[in-house]
Design a protein around this nucleic acid. Structure first.
Lengths: 144, 144
DNA sequence: CTTGAAAGCGTTGCAGG
DNA sequence: CCTGCAACGCTTTCAAG
């Protein structure tokens, strides 16, 4: 991992389909050298995968929210975890330090679906004692 | 946007470098038809960009945190916004409804850098009245 | 939407430096 | 790490159905 690798990663973040020959022009390395570096970045796990970034609005998910969850006892974690992983509208789930145990980031079509998610899914999970939902009004930055 | 487009997007999310010919085998469409659909998904903005997903741990960012920020008055928004957009360690910045005005998601090497970010950057921004930091212990799901 | 053919481009592998 | 060459695969574009 040197400066060149970092530059390659930066370019691939901007355009995951940038070809080795295009990259080679920008980092002043030969095509085979660039291809080799990308292969190594993949093998080492530094690059988890090539993917595509979608426009959430255009996919009909107009509502973004964060839900803080308090779990009663540690024995409920497994069931909670399973349920959350199976729920597509939950984009993120973090175990937190602090007053709440989990923080969820969810994307949904609207408030109707959010209400459903909270009352029909999350609050139905065994051990969920309390939730606190924060609605996103607008997003000025969102990266990985 | 029909079922086939959705399937193509699903495949590209898993592997952004999947070729049209590979996709064509899975969705039972000809190669030119698949290529045309991908081009339209890009043109329409549904696909924002092809990108790469990196392993955050391997990039040395071992600490993930959420910081809630309260801003004193609306006139400070512009300066706040500029500062935040220029700060690489801030992955996300959302304008929120509720007791806090903004929610930041930040990734850093460790607590030292977090302390610096909070006291040297965020709290130095004009108008920032209060912050509340929540540390992530572990992440069980993180998508876009 | 399909197939088929032709042309162009990028990659991959192997040489030798 | 480099260059050069050759082989292969994929994309793109076109015509025709």
């Amino acid at each position: 991992m040197d400066r060149v690798d970092e530059e390659i990663l930066r370019l691939l973040k901007q355009n995951g389909r940038m070809t080795s020959s295009e990259i080679s022009k920008r980092v002043h390395l030969s095509v085979p050298a660039v291809a080799e570096r990308i292969r190594k970045l993949e093998d080492s796990g530094m690059i988890e995968r090539f993917t595509v970034r979608l426009n959430r609005e255009q996919t009909g998910l107009h509502l973004l929210a964060f839900i803080m969850v308090e779990l009663e006892r540690p024995e409920h974690i497994v069931g909670f975890r399973e349920r959350i992983l199976a729920t597509d509208s939950v984009l993120e789930c973090h175990h937190m330090a602090g007053s709440y145990d989990y923080l969820l980031k969810v994307a949904l079509p609207g408030t109707r679906e959010l209400e459903q998610l909270i009352s029909q899914t999350i609050k139905q999970i065994e051990g969920v004692a309390k939730t606190n939902t924060m609605i996103v009004l607008s997003t000025m930055k969102e990266e990985m």
